[in-house]
Design a protein around this nucleic acid. Structure first.
Length: 590
DNA sequence: GCCGTTTTCGGCCCGACTGTTTTCAGTCG
């Protein structure tokens, strides 16, 4: 029995990053120490299992890459108490507003120190006042233009940070790429960066072109109609800000460097650093123009050529986070990632209102057009009926409608599902006497009380999983991207319980949810709980959202076999029946 | 502060752009 996770990985990583920030603005420190601290923060953040759990289980943190005895000690301290002696000392020594100045674009540690020493600037407000009074431009290394830029930055910074959901950015990217491809002399125009890696939100977009006249392509971006501000503009590189707050960076490289550049600008930063270190160890040099031996380029036209020359298989962009993919690429054990086309169905279609057979038929037709074989209509059950869901009579009517429609389909099936609330104490909001004989699957979801203390939230989910009627735990963390944090609970314990019970966990593909996220998906794979990628579509067009769920699944290393709804219908039915205790589990060989 | 099939010291990814310089430091990705 392990101790409950005291502080989450995100909190530990946050504290490590704060140490790095404070060391940085204090100056005089060892830059490499700061880097080590940030590396450790990234490692912890992307770990996929709780460091507090690892410590409780007797695991050794200094086995983790980039974490030695010193950082392991600090991490243990933070995981237990939320802070550590060094962080407290740094907070004591450093004015509280200084670190947030690091977030201003164009302002780094050196200039912050200079501002602090010369003008006693300790906060955004101080900086704004000094800039308004024209004090900055009198400082060595600052000029009138820098002063103006910082003044503007302090104003923008006082508004909330803008990251955008991936789907919203996707439209902009498609538009920009089409326009770049139309510029004379442009050969290739592709997206890179976190967008290509399919991160759940995107802070800026990186685009790459190869062109016979690169300056022309770079210029074209700055002339795009949506640009509100040009941040940088050279002959091979430009950065602009669009009206919706999205930053777009463009680089142009020669065709012979296309692969090396695409690799480089796709990142992640951690993946790039690991690759370059690998190159260096082999006596090679890797940059965005190619892989070089003694100044001679030996690879770079394609990504494959670079990976191959380093002894690696080509790595899918979604895996490039330095979370073990380089070792797997060397060993030939990279996963064959699940693709949208692998999905045979969608296990949570969730009409906003009670659909008549016309609405159900439209959903089914869209599913068939997308080459799906089945679709689970998961009406929300609510004993009182009304706007909150179907009561027993409404449910019976819907089941009859589904049966009638199914009689007219060939090679396609609507499944009869139910969405039920997981109450605060972990019971399912489902009358004990409700007949579930005709129901194919029950998905349980938390709909309120998201911020219970972690041990209570964990117990709630564990108890829900104990109910033999439950098959799938829906959007487990209840996060809403950029709006609501994930609920705090011990995901690892919940997944182990799901595994023991033969239940499944959902990766909700709604762009504002993406829940489970990539790290959660990976944990499910490692523990052996199949993941249901579900659109929660309320109308036919909503089925398109499955794509975003597949993105997170791929980032979580999921193969087709790790995903519940890649199974053919007959196999799926057996798995669901077993989960709900209605039949013997299928043979392991299946 | 971490790390090592060229290990226990001496390294640590690499290049573009900007502003303020008069040859480059600082910042960014």
């Amino acid at each position: 029995m392990s101790a409950p996770a005291a502080f989450s990985n995100a909190q530990v990583a946050g504290a490590l990053d704060e140490i790095a920030d404070l060391l940085e603005v204090q100056g005089g420190g060892n830059g490499l120490r700061i880097r080590a601290c940030r590396n450790a923060a990234r490692t912890v953040d992307g770990l996929g299992r709780s460091v507090a759990e690892m410590i409780a289980a007797g695991g050794k943190l200094d086995d983790l890459p980039g974490i030695g005895a010193d950082l392991a000690g600090k991490i243990a301290e933070i995981a237990a108490t939320g802070t550590c002696a060094q962080l407290e000392a740094l907070r004591h020594e450093t004015p509280p507003g200084l670190a947030e100045l690091l977030r201003l674009p164009g302002l780094g540690p050196r200039r912050i120190q200079r501002l602090h020493e010369a003008l006693h600037i300790e906060s955004l407000q101080d900086l704004q006042a000094a800039a308004q009074q024209g004090q900055l431009q009198r400082l060595h290394g600052f000029g009138a233009e820098t002063q103006q830029r910082l003044l503007e930055a302090t104003r923008l910074r006082l508004q909330p940070q803008r990251r955008l959901p991936l789907p919203q950015v996707a439209e902009t990217v498609a538009l920009l790429l089409a326009q770049l491809k139309a510029v004379p002399g442009v050969h290739e125009a592709v997206a890179a960066g976190s967008f290509r890696r399919r991160r759940d939100t995107v802070g800026d977009v990186d685009l790459l072109v190869t062109a016979s006249a690169p300056a022309l392509a770079v210029h074209a971006l700055t002339q795009h109609s949506g640009v509100t501000r040009v941040l940088a503009h050279g002959t091979t590189k430009a950065g602009v800000l669009l009206a919706d707050g999205l930053q777009v960076d463009l680089r142009a490289v020669p065709p012979a460097s296309f692969g090396a550049a695409w690799l480089y600008f796709t990142g992640s930063r951690a993946h790039n650093i690991a690759l370059r270190r690998l190159a260096q160890e082999a006596g090679l040099k890797l940059n965005e123009y190619g892989l070089y031996r003694d100044g001679r380029r030996i690879a770079g036209h394609t990504e494959q050529s670079v990976y191959r020359a380093l002894g690696l298989a080509w790595i899918e962009p979604e895996l490039r986070e330095d979370r073990g993919e380089l070792d797997a690429a060397r060993a030939g054990t990279l996963p064959r990632l699940v693709e949208l086309a692998d999905l045979r169905g969608d296990l949570r279609v969730h009409p906003a209102s009670v659909l008549g057979s016309v609405g159900l038929r439209a959903l089914a037709q869209e599913a068939m057009a997308r080459r799906l074989d089945y679709l689970a209509i998961t009406a929300r059950f609510h004993a009182g009926g009304g706007a909150q869901g179907l009561d027993a009579a409404g449910l019976a009517r819907q089941l009859r409608a589904i049966e009638q429609l199914n009689e007219g389909f060939e090679g396609f099936t609507l499944l009869k599902g139910l969405e039920v609330e997981i109450l605060e104490d972990g019971r399912l909001d489902l009358p004990a006497d409700l007949d579930l004989a005709g129901i194919d699957l029950v998905t349980g979801v938390v709909l309120r009380a998201f911020d219970l203390p972690a041990p209570k939230q964990t117990e709630r989910l564990l108890r829900a999983l104990d109910d033999p009627r439950l098959a799938i735990l829906g959007h487990p963390t209840n996060r809403l991207l950029l709006q609501r944090e994930a609920s705090a609970f011990d995901l690892e314990r919940v997944l182990r319980q799901a595994k023991a019970r033969g239940c499944f966990v959902e990766a909700d593909a709604l762009p504002q949810r993406l829940d489970l996220d990539d790290v959660g998906c990976r944990m499910a794979r490692e523990i052996g709980v199949p993941v249901s990628i579900a659109s929660e579509a309320q109308e036919p067009a909503g089925l398109a959202d499955l794509l975003w769920g597949v993105g997170q699944a791929r980032r979580g290393w999921l193969e087709p076999a790790d995903v519940l709804n890649t199974r053919p219908l007959s196999q799926l039915r057996r798995l669901l029946a077993a989960a709900q205790g209605r039949a013997a589990p299928e043979p392991a060989a299946a």
